[in-house]
Amino acid sequence: MDKQEILHAYELMVLSRLFDSKMLALQRQGRLGTFASSQGHEAIQVGSVMALKKDDWVAPYFRQWPAFIALGYPMEMLLQYNSGDERGMLIPKGINVLPVNIPVSSQIPHAVGLAWGFKKKGQKKVVVCFLGDGATSKGDFHEALNFAGVFKVPVILICENNQYAISVPLKRQTASKTIAQKADAYGIEGMRIDGNNVEEIYEAVIKAREIALQGKPVLIEAVTYRLSDHTTADDASRYRSKSEVEEARKKDWRIILKNKIINEGFWNESKEKQLIKKLELLIEKAVKKFESIKPVDPMDIFNYTFNEMTYQLKRQSETFKRFYPNG
């Protein structure tokens, strides 16, 4: 990464962190529903997305707000989605991402199928699939990695090893020394990198992209720490100590990267202040836009189950309409 790229990454990462804090505040005020905070995952997601080409795709799980932001997804739509309004997941044309995927690891087969389809069509693009460490215990992880290996699918699986699946620590998920070594079992490439080092991630994904396009899927284990609770409905103090979290905070990119660019002479506190001011304004604008979105029409329940409404759905919607004639 050159200076410009590092600063661009830094800006997206800080924006993601500030946006996440804003969402936590909005959630506490009851303006958003339960969501998964992504603090501690910004470097992985921003670095990965920056390494992709325009036509590549991303298959997210549910802790993916920095990736969405790096892809240029409108923040007001992320707020809308997390407020419980599905219209926030109407992915704008030109952004190549699958919708947020909740059941752990079930997005991996989709990513493998999507990348396989691109390969079969002779298109030179990759799919990046994000997953957590808990996902590596599920059957879909193993089935899909096996498929990817057999069919030489251009997929890059990025495992955000943040040490916990809600309360269960990594040592209860696997007896393997690393997650990266699981790649060996499927004849695919494994890498293990520091998930707080955006430059390392960026370089790894660029390399992985080349390997994947040559027909070898890649599993990248990016080691980090989940700085927040699992979701806004969780209380992590029940299962991990304050001192452990404090230790992890010392390795947070937010401190390390900032110090690095200051030490290297292309950043300073006044630039930092200006950046934060600029980004907070962006976020405020997004919140305003989010708040001005018209409420969803209850009749929207009946759209999008099938391409055309079935006889049964038509009858049900007609009955329903009598109770909500004005939407």
Partner: peptide
Amino acid sequence: ERVIDTPLAESTIVGASIGLAISGYKP
């Protein structure tokens, strides 16, 4: 390329079909 013997894995036969469909195939 069009009639594909897969590994023995029903969940991913359907799961990968979802991705294949989004890529433009009719699995």
